[in-house]
Structures are given as structure tokens and as C-alpha cells.
Design a protein around this nucleic acid. Structure first.
Lengths: 238, 238
DNA sequence: TACGGTAGGTGTACGCCGTACACTCGTCAA
DNA sequence: TTGACGAGTGTACGGCGTACACCTACCGTA
């Protein structure tokens, strides 16, 4: 009667259990509050027990990234390259949207994890299949940057406003000092947009920028653009 | 003879001295190694002395951002709006390029500091003066995102390769698993580009993406685009 | 049945971190 | 002369990641 449930004997740890608990905890309390000690406590275990399953906190974060990136839908078939890439990127965005910490963690890693690499590989493949040259594909991937994984590229990481009831119509003194910002904030009155990036329609902003880039790539493809010609100067497009 | 230089009596601290020492130290040892204790030591002072000049580490970081952003050249006059915005953004990039930690710190702040706000205000003003509608300007600013301050938008923050002599031609096994990535890495042989973002010409990539966006804005302006019409779907441009 | 190796969980401890709080000491106005 | 004040100090606390030694339950083998 060794495994008798006299006091809920706690399931044994495993790397997967550690990682998914970490993801869930980060979702709940934020990545900056996620510590090895806090995670251990959540799992009903002493902190050092975690180190039997992950080498250190860095590797824990890597594992969390892998877990999240693996949720991205596989690529769909058919249709034009722009639509295909668009759908894939939007599904990446959807997958990462529930894990606001993921962008920051991925950016902070020094190199890509296998799942990220596989994802990037698939997007590159779609661009190539769409007829973009290696050269153009290369620059397109740089131009997309983190956006390829669905990251928003705001100046600030846009912590959700803790008090959405007072959307801060800009303190009037500030509005005078920064008139153009104030004009934008005023106009974005579809909800209380504070400065830039407060309460706008993130999804629309994301798709706007994405489509602008994809259209640009397609235009360059059609005209056989190559990075050899026309470097600096005014405008890539004649 | 109180201030006699018997042992280099150390200049008194000041907020400015603290901030500029912090900027210099972060440039030297990296932002993650910058601690209040380390900074104090650099200034020949006990850690708590810093707290007479900055409220806490958060405010220290804010002050560092202000210091760096204030280095951005003032806007130039004349010429078309694209050229003007382009030059301003490239000078922001130039200013922040010497402080690789700045992008990360700015992103991690929850709100904009005054200098950042003033800079954004000036860029918005240039777009408006160029004839973009409030609506289009708003979305353009979101599309630019951190790029408006010269941030690169790579998936990874691209720590400089500590061993540039071994540029990692991709381990062959990896090349097989990620063929499209390998193709790109191979082609970007103008130097040892590892994966995506290793050793490419960052300045070119930045200008490529920037010009693509600016051209897109101008195109939308010319056709009187408004976010009211044509939301989701395939392509912003008819 | 006895035994030795091993994998997983524990406990203690170290050196960092940010910073609260009480203090000393030099300067200067009244 | 005194007393307030601002700058720098010293000590201490709670948190962090994790090295290292330990215990213990389980296993295959002899």
C-alpha cells in the first residue's frame, strides 16, 4: 500500500510538467514574477528539485518558448503566397497572443530554439515558393523581423492598462507640449487610446503593417528587384 | 584647506553624474550586469548614496533613456516628407546604435519619458506636414513601431558573436533539417551570416524595411486611403 | 533474498540583488 | 552658538539563482 492517497501524494515531476507549469504560471503572474522558487512552490516541491529536469533558468525559458511555438498551426496549402504567408503569420500571432511574455523571452534568447527555427524555415519556404529570389527573401525576413512570429513592434511593450476606466485623455499640459501626439490620441477615440499603443485595435494595426510589407515584397518581386542595384537614396521603387 | 587633494577627494555626486556614469557603464558591461551596487562602486561611493539622486532603479533607467534619446539630432528642414522622416529616423538609429541596451530598456518601460514623447511628436508632425491624414499617420506610427526610434526588429536581439572567426556555416545536420534557412544563410555569404541576423549589413536591412514602409505610406496617401474602407482581406492596395 | 547503482527529491549555504531605515558629518542661516 | 538640512554611510532584510552534499525508494542482478 505504498502509493496510498492518504494525502494526495503528488504526481512525480517531469520536464514536461515543469515546462507547462512554468508557462501557465507566467501567463498568470507575468514573466518577471516567475522565479525558480515560485515555480517550485506551485508544483509543491522544493526549488532544487526543478534542477533535476532543467539545467538552469535559461533552459527553462528555452523550453517554455518551445512549448508555445509548437502551438502554432501547421501551414495551410494552396492559394497565393501572400495569402498563405499572411495566414501563417496571423496564426503565429494568435498562438502567442495568449502568452504576452513570449515575445520578450524569445527576443532575449541569444539563439533560436529548434521549433522557432522550423517555423522560420517554413515561412522562408513559402516566400521562395512564391517566386521571391533568395536575395529578396532574405531582406524580406529581416524587414518582417519579429513580426514574422506575430510580435507587435510597438515602442513600448504596452502593459495592459490596470485602470481602463480612466483611459487618460492626456493631462492637457501634456497635450500642449506634444500637440501632434495629442491630435492622434484624440482621433483614436474609438476607445481611450493613451499616447500611441494604448487602446487601439491591435489586430488591425498588425494586419495593416503586415499587408503593407507583403504588398511591398510582391511589388519588388514583380519588378525583379535585387539588392545589387539602387542601395541608399530615396525610395526603393523607381 | 578642507578640499586639499591629498587623495583625490572625489567630486560630489549629482543626478547627471549618476546618469552619465550609468550610461557609460551599461555601454561597457551590458545592461544586465548594471546593478546599483556596481554603479556605486564605479563612482567610488556606497550603494545607498545613489538613492539621494534617483528614487530607485526604475528611475535610473528612465533617466538613462532620457540621456540617450536627447542625443538624437534635431529635425532638418526642407525637402519631401519621406526624405525628412527618413533622415530623422536614421539619425535616431545612429544615436542609439552606440547604446545597444537602449532599445530593450525603452521597450521595458511602461510609458514614454518626455524626451521620447517629444521625439515621437516631431515625427508625427512630419508625417502630418507631408499630407498624411490623422488616420493614416496613426496607423503609420504603429506600423513603424520601435523602428521609428531606430530599433532593429529582429526575432532575436542579436548579441554580437563573441567568436567571429568561426562564423558557424551551420552544422550540416541543421542545414538538412532547415533547408530554407540554410539556403539563406549560404547566400548571405558576404560575411558569416549565422541563421537570420548574424552578420548581415544591419544598416542596409534597416533602410530596406524603412523605405518599404515609407513608400507604402506615400502610396496610400496618394490614393486617399482611409481605414474606414477595406479592412481585412487581401491587400490594402487595390 | 541480498545488494549496489541510480534517479528524483531535500536541506543548507553562498553570493548576488534592490532598498528601508537609522546614522553621521559638514555647511550655512539665523 | 545653534539648529536645520542635505549628502554620504552602515547595517540589515528578503528575494534571487544555484552548487553541493545528502537521503531514499526503486531497480536489475547475483
Amino acid at each position: 500500500m505504498t502509493p496510498r492517497p492518504e494525502a494526495a501524494p503528488r504526481a512525480p515531476l517531469s520536464r514536461d510538467r515543469v515546462l507547462s507549469a512554468a508557462v501557465e504560471l507566467a501567463d498568470g503572474i507575468g514573466i518577471e514574477a516567475l522565479s525558480m522558487r515560485r515555480l517550485a512552490q506551485e508544483l509543491g516541491v522544493v526549488p532544487m528539485a526543478l534542477y533535476k529536469h532543467v539545467a538552469n533558468k535559461e533552459q527553462l525559458l528555452d523550453g517554455m518558448v518551445e512549448a508555445v511555438v509548437s502551438e502554432i498551426d501547421p501551414p495551410a496549402r494552396g492559394s497565393d503566397w501572400q495569402g498563405a504567408v499572411r495566414r501563417r503569420i496571423l496564426s503565429a500571432r494568435a498562438a502567442l497572443l495568449g502568452h504576452p511574455w513570449a515575445a520578450q523571452v524569445i527576443r532575449s534568447r541569444s539563439g533560436p530554439t529548434p521549433a522557432v527555427l522550423a517555423y522560420l524555415d517554413s515561412v522562408i519556404g513559402m516566400l521562395r515558393a512564391g517566386g521571391l529570389s533568395v536575395d529578396l527573401t532574405h531582406h524580406a525576413m529581416h524587414a518582417l523581423g519579429g513580426r514574422v512570429l506575430g510580435f507587435t513592434q510597438e515602442v513600448f511593450d504596452a502593459a495592459p492598462d490596470p485602470d481602463p476606466a480612466a483611459p487618460a485623455a492626456m493631462p492637457a499640459e501634456a497635450a500642449a507640449a506634444y500637440p501632434h501626439v495629442a491630435e492622434l490620441a484624440m482621433a483614436a477615440a474609438h476607445d481611450g487610446d493613451s499616447v500611441v499603443g494604448g487602446g487601439c485595435d491591435d489586430q488591425f494595426e498588425f494586419e495593416f503593417a503586415l499587408d503593407l510589407l507583403l504588398d511591398g515584397f510582391e511589388r519588388l518581386r514583380r519588378q525583379g528587384w535585387s539588392s545589387g542595384a539602387r542601395r541608399a537614396g530615396d525610395g526603393l521603387i523607381a
